[in-house]
């Protein structure tokens, strides 16, 4: 398990990351969300040891993460690239070796991944000759070489075409299925919602919300949509019910309690003509907007 405890980074007057604490359990995929400048990249750099924290520590399997541990973390930085003038296979092999693999093992693994990502014909091509999409695929491969113990990926999906997004997602799921903890940041909230077991929301350097998406939704206010065949204007008069939006026969409402909602439904049924009565599950983007605005 990967954990960050009280991680803080001060730049002069600015506290870019402020006492950030969260966990990435083994085999779990955690989405790291937050606006630009929220401190996600700074946090991830500190996790990788590329940047020294002002305070706090990164804990791997119960002990402060060492250089050797981090050498086996797969990392995709926000600012990424490869040697433009080196053939793609050579360079991935080199990166694999830097992560501690043998020449043969690194070469085999790089080749295997390149073939899987449809670059099997281009092993000997220089990176600068590859299309942008293929360069990004090579970049993805670079981050998972060397049998990583954990994956720290800064905006791994940005700029990927839909098929590469799927390939990336599969690759991440394979890693979590073998117990590797995965932390990735993203602005694509639907994607985070779809892939992640949990999310951490960072705002102005602080963790403002964390948990599974269900847990986060659990904190969201109770809301229902009621749709009637006739006019729904009468709902306004029901005690314990706050109407948020009324449009002809459809009303969005926030009941004070679950019972109030049930009483409302009973009344609606007795009046006749209920088309729909459903709980509104806020999307992650809505939750995010709410916590970020707080």
């Amino acid at each position: 398990m990967l954990a960050v405890q009280g991680l803080t980074r001060q730049y002069g007057e600015l506290r870019a990351v402020d006492d950030v604490t969260f966990e990435v359990p083994a085999g779990r995929m955690i989405g790291f969300v937050g606006g630009n400048g929220a401190g996600k990249t700074t946090t991830m750099r500190m996790i990788m040891g590329v940047l020294a924290p002002t305070a706090g520590e990164v804990v791997w399997d119960g002990h402060p993460a060492t250089l050797a541990d981090r050498a086996r973390f797969g990392y995709m930085p926000e600012e990424r690239g490869l040697y433009p003038k080196q053939p793609v296979l050579d360079q991935l092999t080199y990166l694999g070796r830097l992560h501690g693999m043998s020449q043969t093992a690194a070469n085999t693994r790089a080749k295997e991944l390149l073939e899987r990502f449809g670059l099997g014909e281009r092993l000997k091509e220089k990176v600068e000759k590859l299309s942008l999409g293929n360069q990004q695929r090579a970049q993805i491969i670079a981050s998972v070489l060397g049998d990583p113990l954990a994956l720290i990926l800064d905006e791994p999906f940005s700029g990927l075409d839909p098929s590469a997004v799927d390939q990336m997602a599969d690759l991440l799921r394979e890693h979590t299925s073998t117990g590797v903890p995965v932390l990735f940041s993203s602005h694509q909230l639907e994607l985070v919602d779809r892939l992640c077991d949990g999310i951490v929301v960072l705002h102005k350097g602080k963790v403002v919300a964390k948990g599974t998406s269900d847990e986060l939704r659990g904190n969201a206010p109770l809301r229902y949509v009621l749709s009637l065949t006739g006019d729904a204007g009468w709902v306004r008069g029901v005690p314990g019910i706050q109407v948020l939006d009324l449009d002809g026969g459809t009303v969005e409402l926030e009941p004070e309690t679950e019972e109030a909602a049930q009483r409302l439904l009973t009344e609606a049924v007795s009046r006749g003509g209920v088309r729909e009565f459903s709980r509104v599950r806020p999307s992650l983007s809505e939750i995010y907007r709410e916590v970020a605005a707080a």
Binding site: G100, S102, S163, V180
Partner: peptide
């Protein structure tokens, strides 16, 4: 998409990582 790629490569059963552990010197 995921059905045709994911079963083919399970990261930890490939021989590469095993070799990696012995040559970390």
């Amino acid at each position: 998409m995921s059905t045709d790629t994911s079963p083919s490569t399970d990261v930890n059963v490939t021989p590469a990582p095993a070799a990696a552990a012995t040559t970390r010197m």
